[in-house]
Design a protein around this nucleic acid. Structure first.
Lengths: 239, 239
DNA sequence: ATGGGCTCTTGGTCTAGACCACGGGATGGA
DNA sequence: TCCATCCCGTGGTCTAGACCAAGAGCCCAT
């Protein structure tokens, strides 16, 4: 079939990538592209060249390669505006059903130094670590890891984790009233790729929250958000 | 020389990537890895396989491939904490020399709808667009694009752009006192790659600021930060 | 019905080459 | 001394195959 018409000087895999992008955008999410071998023959090109083009589309987040099945158009991203401290509310505002999957809840025998420093854990005091996956309509939106001083939350059970931790904290007068949040971007760790159901080359937002009640450090939390699906929102302070 | 010792079941390019990562970490920033052809021979492997390993290290941000020169270890990232609205101060706090390179300053004949909506531009009112590159010790840290209602800043000249725009605004009683900021992560556009001097596969933080003085919309700004070099920092509000 | 295995299709890895395009240093002439 | 040019080493692209491994559906034996 027709050879690749590259505006002289353009690499073939670039031209193929651009043509293929058009093809993908005409597909419904979840639908596969033609097989790599077929595309290679169709364009009269080596399979490696087609793979290079598809890899680029995968980095763009447009396509997901699944071994044994094909190169599928990615699901439509849902873009979520999250104002920090109210995850469930943010999800509900988008008419999504917020759910939480507890992954882990227990004593962290060896917490990172940033955690012990911030929570002021010295002799004997232990850190409780909670890991949760937050979803909207079943789609993973955030992976959270939170540390508390264990003696502050003695009766926190697995059941409390499926709802808002902030309700639990509020009932005990531990609702944070100040602190700071830092945001960086990066690429996901391998284990995060699976839990968040994203591709390894798509960026993520990482957020670190240090929260206080008055002078007392209450919560150290790290959250990972797929960049495709989430936007973090902050009110500007008066100066 | 020694064949690749892969923990049976591991792909060669993975094993090579991991060995190569160790090699890179022993290099000084800017120093090149051995040439691809040499590495391929050394490990008894095809050059394409070595290239696959190096591409992974490039995505990690550890290595930068330069056509005609080699695969060089990336410069040491400088990690900057930026509290919004005070870029120059943030840079100075890290003992860096903040500079600004004005790229463009003029009327935007066709501003995006989000801009005209926010700034309330109707009828003959026009938008002034400013593009600047912010650096610390000569290293690009942010690419900014800012829109103002043109009649609010009639005497803004190219000279004002090299310093803090906020000084200019403050002198005219236009210093923003409220607003909102949204943060997303993504990959850089091709033109951003060059200006920020990053590799195309490294994530960036994108920030959109809508700033007001009282009820009056003053500034719509978009900024792009290399994820390797910047961390955005926000104070937590009292609730 | 149902479960297990077979087979076919798909992407994943890898090879051993080829030629192109860029950068930099050596070389030589003005 | 200075500048243009050439050459060579580098990464960038591309080929035409090969085999491996995972998913999915078929078919048969239970």
């Amino acid at each position: 079939m027709g050879a690749v018409t590259s505006p002289s000087g353009t690499a073939k895999h670039i031209a193929i990538r651009d043509q293929l992008r058009e093809t993908v955008l005409r597909l419904a999410p979840g639908q596969p592209l033609p097989a790599e071998r077929q595309l290679a023959e169709q364009w009269g090109v080596a399979r490696m060249t087609v793979r290079q083009a598809i890899a680029a589309l995968a980095r763009e987040g447009l396509v997901r390669s699944v071994h044994g099945r094909g190169n599928l158009r990615s699901p439509e991203p849902l873009q979520l505006r999250i104002q920090l401290g109210s995850f469930a509310d943010a999800v509900r505002e988008h008419d999504l059903e917020p759910t939480t999957r507890p992954l882990e809840c227990g004593i962290d025998e060896n917490p990172p130094e940033v955690v012990t420093d911030f929570l002021g854990l010295g002799g004997g005091q232990r850190a409780l670590r909670v890991r949760r996956l937050r979803l909207g309509n079943g789609v993973p939106l955030a992976l959270e890891r939170t540390w508390f001083a264990a003696d502050l939350v003695p009766d926190l059970t697995e059941r409390d984790l499926t709802g808002s931790l902030y309700h639990y904290l509020e009932a005990r007068g531990l609702l944070p009233d100040s602190g700071e949040e830092a945001v960086v971007a990066g690429l996901p760790e391998p284990h995060e790729v699976g839990l968040l159901d994203i591709s390894a080359s798509r960026p993520v937002l990482r957020l670190v929250r240090k929260a206080l009640v008055g002078e007392r450090a209450v919560e150290y939390a790290e959250a990972v958000f797929p960049a495709d699906r989430c936007e973090l929102w902050f009110p500007l302070q008066s100066r």
